[in-house]
Design a protein around this nucleic acid. Structure first.
Lengths: 337, 337
DNA sequence: CTGAAAGCGCTTACAG
DNA sequence: CTGAAAGCGCTTACAG
C-alpha cells in the first residue's frame, strides 16, 4: 500500500501549482495567496489527500511528536493523566505516541527505543519513576518530564507532582476535625512518594497535638499491602478509629480488612485513601480520598514540554507541585462516642 | 535536534563500507558476509546508532506499524487487551501506535487521522464499536480487526469476541447449580453485546427448566446502570435470590444496591458479573464473574492482523470467538433455604 | 558479496 | 507570491 495514496505531487498537479506551494499552503503559510490556498485546499480535498507524517518528519528534520511512557495502564490514575497530556499536546499541535511499561525490563527498554526511533522530540513519563533507560534518552538532549513523582537523582528533569505533604495533612485534618485521635497511617512502603505522604502525616499529627498518637504500619501501594497493613494496625490493643492509607488501591485493601474483621466503615473505622482514581467514586467503594488533579498534571506536563520544545534556549528544569484536594465520601465519619 | 544523531552514512564511513551494505546488514540480510556484518554492527554500536523509523518507513514504503485504537482507557479491561496486542505485535516485529477514543467525536476522528498519517498498515480497535470514521480507513485498504464485539454492519472487518451466549450460560448454570431459581438478569442495554448476553441468559434459563423464572430488568454498562437496574429488580414482590449482571462495572453497582437495601452478598443475594476485569479480584470486590480471555483476545487480533499484512493475497474476514471462563469468587453462594 | 544510484514524500532555503 | 532544486535518512532494484 502507500504508493496508491495521493501525494503532494498529485495535489500540485491537480491544482496546477508546484509542490512547494502545496506544502506551504497546507502549512497555512502567510506567504501564499489566499486564492491559491483555496484552490490547493480544494484539490487536496478532492483527492482525499492525507499528509504522510513520516515524510514530513524526515523532510522537516523534526517530528512534532512527543513520546508518552505510561508506567502501568492497569492503574486507572494514569488514564486520567493521559487524557490531560493528549488534550494539551493536541492544542499545541504536537502528536503523541504512547508506550507502556510495567512488564519486564526488556520490554520496557524496547518500548523506549521505539520512541527514540520515532525521533520524538520530548518525553513524558507517567509514573512514580522514570522508565529504565530513560537516562540515555534524556542525555541525548531529548527533554523529559516526569509526572507523579520527583526524581531523586535526575536534577535535570522537570517534574510535576502533587504536594504529598499537604495532601497527607488534608487527610489528617479531616479526620481530626471529625474528632478522631487514634489515626494510624498505613504507609506506602519505601518509595519517595510513600515517604512524603508519611512525613506529611507525621507533621500534621504533631501540628494537631496528636504527637503521642502517631503510629505507622508498613503497607505498600497494592490491595494486598493495604490489607496486610490494616490487619496489623487492627491487632493493636488500642485499636485505631481511623486510617490514612497511602493510596487508593491499598485503601481498598483496608476496606476489605475492616470487613473481614467485622468492623463497619465508617461506623467503627474511618478510612481515607490517596490519589482520587475515578474508581473510588463508584457507589460500592465510595471512598474518601485525597485526590490528585490528575488531568491537570498531565496537561501541565505537556504544556511545559511543548514550551520547552518551541523555545530555542534551554528551559531550566523545574519541580512543579500541584495542590491535592480532599474528596469526602462515605468512608469517613466521626468516631463512635 | 535530530541532525546531531549518527546516521547510516556515519556508520558506513566508520565501517569503511557503503550505505547500502549497512542497511542490508542491519536488516540481517543473508546477502552480507558474516564478517562484514560484524564490523558494521560494531561501528553502529560504537556510534550509538539508532535507525530513524520515519526514514525507514518512507524508504521502504511501508511502516511495519499497526495502529491500536482504544475506546476507553478508563475501563481496565482494555489495558489487558492491550497487553496482548503489544506482546504479539512485538513478536511479529511490528510497531504499535496507540490512540485513545471515547471523548468527543472530533477528538476521536483526529486520533484516527493521526494513525492514517503515520501510514499504519493495519488497525486494531479495542472496544464495543469501531471508532467513528474507521470506515474511511478501512475502505482505503487498511485491514482492520475489532476486538470485543462483532461489527453488525461491516462484514469485511475481522473481529475477535467472546462467546457471549456461552458466557451467559456459564453464569446461569453456576447459579442454578447452587440451587437458585429466581435468577434475574440486569441487562446491558441495547448494544449488540448486551443483546447477546441477554439472549444467552434466556436460553440457558429455558434449558434449565426455569423458563417461568426468566426476568430481565433494563440496566447498562456503568456502575449507575447496574445500581438502578438492581434496585428495580429488588422492588419486585418475589425478590430474586440471584442476579446475573451484564458487566463488571454494572455488577459493582449491583453490589452497592444490595448493600443499600440491607441485603448481604452472597447470603441474601448472589451476584455474577461479566468481563473479568482484574479489579473484580480485589479483596473488597471479590466478584464472581464470567471472565473474557482479554489478553488472548488482543494477541489473537494482533496475530491475525500481522498474518494478513504478511501475505499478499487478501485474507477473508472472520468472526473469531473465544471461550469465556467462569471465575468463582465470593459473591455467589447457595440461596438461603 | 558489495557499491552507485534512484526513489520514498515531504520541507526549506534560494531565486526570481 | 511562486517554482526549481537540494536534502532529510533510509531501502531497494540493478550492476558488477
Amino acid at each position: 500500500m502507500g504508493s496508491g495514496r495521493p501525494t503532494i505531487r498529485d495535489v500540485a498537479a491537480r491544482a496546477g501549482v508546484s509542490k512547494s506551494l502545496v506544502s506551504l499552503a497546507l502549512q497555512d503559510s502567510p506567504r501564499v495567496a489566499a486564492s491559491t490556498r483555496e484552490v490547493i485546499r480544494q484539490a487536496a480535498d478532492d483527492l482525499g489527500y492525507r499528509p504522510n507524517a513520516n515524510a514530513r518528519s524526515l523532510g522537516a528534520s523534526r517530528s512534532r511528536t512527543i513520546g508518552v511512557f505510561v508506567l502501568d495502564l492497569h492503574n486507572p490514575i494514569y488514564a486520567d493523566m493521559l487524557d490531560g497530556v493528549q488534550a494539551e499536546a493536541r492544542r499545541n499541535d504536537y502528536r503523541t505516541i504512547v508506550v507502556l511499561g510495567g512488564q519486564d525490563r526488556r520490554a520496557e527498554r524496547a518500548e523506549l527505543e521505539k520512541l527514540m526511533e520515532f525521533r520524538v522530540e520530548g518525553l513524558i513519563a507517567l509514573g512514580h519513576r522514570l522508565p529504565l533507560g530513560a537516562h540515555d534518552a534524556i542525555s541525548q538532549a531529548c527533554p523529559a518530564v516526569l509526572v507523579g513523582a520527583e526524581p531523586r537523582s535526575q536534577p535535570h528533569v522537570t517534574s510535576v507532582s502533587t504536594d504529598d505533604l499537604n495532601g497527607a495533612a488534608l487527610a489528617v485534618d479531616h479526620l481530626a476535625d471529625l474528632g478522631h485521635e487514634r489515626i494510624v497511617h498505613v504507609t506506602g512502603g519505601s518509595s519517595g512518594v510513600a515517604h512524603k505522604r508519611e512525613r506529611g502525616y507525621v507533621s500534621a499529627m504533631v501540628r494537631r497535638n496528636l504527637k503521642h498518637r502517631v503510629r505507622c504500619v508498613v503497607g505498600g501501594f497494592t490491595d494486598d499491602d493495604g490489607y496486610r497493613g490494616t490487619m496489623e494496625a487492627l491487632r493493636s490493643r488500642s485499636r485505631p478509629t481511623a486510617l490514612f492509607v497511602a493510596n487508593d488501591f491499598a485503601a481498598m485493601g483496608a476496606l476489605a480488612a475492616a470487613s473481614d474483621s467485622g468492623l463497619s466503615v465508617p461506623g467503627d473505622l474511618s478510612i481515607v485513601g490517596f490519589d482520587g482514581a475515578r474508581l473510588t467514586g463508584l457507589r460500592f467503594i465510595d471512598l474518601t480520598t485525597v485526590a490528585q488533579p490528575l488531568q491537570e498534571m498531565g496537561a501541565i506536563a505537556a504544556s511545559r514540554l511543548c514550551a520547552a520544545l518551541e523555545s530555542e534556549d534551554e528551559q531550566p528544569p523545574r519541580r512543579i507541585h500541584v495542590a491535592p484536594q480532599l474528596v469526602v465520601r462515605n468512608s469517613t465519619a466521626p468516631p463512635r462516642s
